[in-house]
Simulated scan of single mutants.
Amino acid sequence: MTTPRDLLITTMDLAARRALERGNLSLALAGAELIDLLEARAVTLAGDHLVPSDRRSLADRMLDEAASSLAQQAPYDSVGTWLWRRGRGLSEAYLAALEAEGQLSRRRRHRWMIFQPTHTVLVDSPARRHAANRYASDEPVLAALAAAAGIGDGLTERSPSVADEAVATVLAAVQDAVRDLEAERQRRAIEEAAFDNIWRGD
């Protein structure tokens, strides 16, 4: 299993406790991909820019797609720029991948309602148990990514407690991106509320 898959399975297992924003999750998944690419030495960091290594196919299809999306020539992507580009719709892509692999199933909430929408649930599998054990162990990378996605205690101001400087840089960039996304949501909510007030004559 990969870190993005562990992250998605963890959030699905725990998300019933709180509503998650798909944008946050997509950014966290992109960060998880980048951390796995660093571990696989498919990319290195030069400052905060992503320098791809010699192109070689990775065993995981989604990670291979992530590696392919890296800018191959200078000027290379910054971590933040790549997170925003790669993260667009990424949670849906991973849901589809897990479903295709048989890790998810679709069920109706009420079988007697013909037109009742289905919902996606995790199947009991070694992958699910692996992700649960990894999260329960307080492994710092998964914990930080899950917090960025909205699981656990949420974002904190503390730096991620990881020894690898490149991984810490990615985790910090994910946190910054999620905060920027939340600020944008708040700005839009204020603008929409002001617009509604104008129409109501408030």
Rank of each mutant, 00 (worst) to 15 (best):
E101C: 09
A143D: 12
R85Y: 06
I35P: 02
W84E: 11
V123C: 09
D36C: 08
A46H: 15
A168T: 11
L27W: 05
R22P: 10
V79G: 07
E21V: 06
F195D: 10
S91P: 12
A148Q: 01
L25D: 10
Q186W: 15
S68M: 01
A183V: 14
L50A: 08
G152S: 06
G23K: 08
H49G: 11
R158G: 05
W84R: 14
D36I: 13
A194S: 07
G150N: 00
E65Q: 07
R107L: 08
V79D: 10
D13S: 11
L34N: 11
I9E: 06
G201S: 00
A131P: 01
S105Y: 02
L104F: 14
T169M: 11
L181E: 13
W199P: 02
E33S: 12
A194F: 05
S26V: 06
D36F: 07
W84Y: 14
T2A: 04
S125Q: 09
G154K: 06
N24I: 15
Q175W: 03
F115N: 09
L63M: 04
Y94D: 04
D138A: 14
G87K: 00
A163D: 14
I114E: 06
G89C: 04
S53A: 14
D196G: 04
A189D: 12
A183Q: 15
S125Y: 04
T10S: 12
P117H: 03
V51T: 03
T118I: 03
R17W: 06
L27V: 09
S137I: 06
D54K: 15
V167T: 14
A143V: 12
L98K: 03
D153T: 10
I35T: 13
A40S: 08
V43M: 12
F195R: 12
S53P: 00
A143Y: 08
A100K: 14
W82T: 09
L7F: 03
E182L: 11
R5F: 07
D77H: 04
A147G: 06
H119C: 03
P160G: 04
T3V: 07
L181S: 12
D48N: 14
R200Q: 01
E139A: 13
E191Y: 09
L95Q: 05
L142S: 07
T10N: 01
L104P: 02
